[in-house]
């Protein structure tokens, strides 16, 4: 065993057992059993979910689950964790991990710093734990929630969902888009020390404090719209406030 083909991660919902599916299946099995043996019952009673790097067939899954059960673990399928995988050079094509939500769209949950030149393009909602740097882009079919500073570009509701919103812990984007309507931030960069939400009102993108009661004096402001990018960069639109 030159390198571990199994990593066990603890999350609030239970254990995630990450499997390197490119390895020999028997090696994975042996490795898994060895991990539990070494843990001497430490994992007993814990909920777990298997997360292979590529899908396993049902027989393989069953065999691995059996090993986990033997050691007292309880299978559960709704455990999620921000994936540690780094977005690739230019574009990260995300299929999984995802969970279904009430609105029917899956959600991508990931963490880290999304850096200049990196792009997330996901058909569902995107929840990003970390900063989105200038030059980085998140495109989502649904909502975008950024638990960090958004300095790059975020486009929500890419399939035309006008109710999609963009929420960030700190909203300092280069550009926002909702349902194809694109706006840029005011030329005069203002930093608001509170979370903000961007929504579509008519054909304009309006920014408001996410917690209205706390900052009730702010009545929201508009981002200047870019009707037909990149043809025209309009001057700042009138503020609502």
């Amino acid at each position: 065993m030159a390198q571990d083909c199994i990593t066990i991660k603890g999350t609030r919902g239970g254990l995630l057992i990450l499997l390197d599916a490119s390895r020999d299946f028997n090696e994975i099995k042996a490795n898994l059993a060895a991990k539990f043996a070494a843990a001497r019952g430490f994992f007993r009673g814990a909920a777990f979910a298997l997360v292979p790097t590529s899908p396993l067939n049902s027989q393989e899954t069953a065999e691995l689950e059996a090993i986990c059960r033997e050691h007292g673990l309880v299978p559960r399928n709704d455990i999620t964790l921000p994936s540690r995988r780094r977005p690739g050079g230019n574009q990260a094509a995300y299929q999984e991990p995802s969970t279904s939500t009430g609105t029917g769209l899956p959600t991508l949950l990931d963490e880290g710093n999304l850096r200049n030149g990196q792009e997330i393009n996901y058909p569902g909602h995107v929840m990003w734990l970390g900063d989105v740097h200038q030059g980085a882009t998140i495109k989502a079919g649904g909502n975008i929630l950024i638990m960090g500073t958004l300095k790059g570009i975020a486009h929500a509701g890419r399939q035309g969902d006008r109710s999609a919103a963009i929420v960030a812990y700190r909203l300092e984007p280069e550009q926002l888009g909702i349902a194809g309507i694109i706006a840029r931030s005011p030329e005069q960069k203002t930093r608001h020390p509170y979370p903000e939400i961007a929504r579509l009102v008519g054909t304009r993108i309006v920014i408001e404090p996410y917690l209205r009661s706390k900052n009730s004096r702010d009545e929201g402001y508009l981002y200047s719209s870019i009707p037909d990018p990149p043809a025209a960069w309009h001057k700042l639109g009138p503020s609502l406030g």
Binding site: R86, R115, N116, H133, G135
Partner: peptide, 15 residues
Amino acid sequence: VRDADRIIGLLEAAE
């Protein structure tokens, strides 16, 4: 600094 950010992203992606 912008280019450095890009490079750091690529280095991270290269693990």
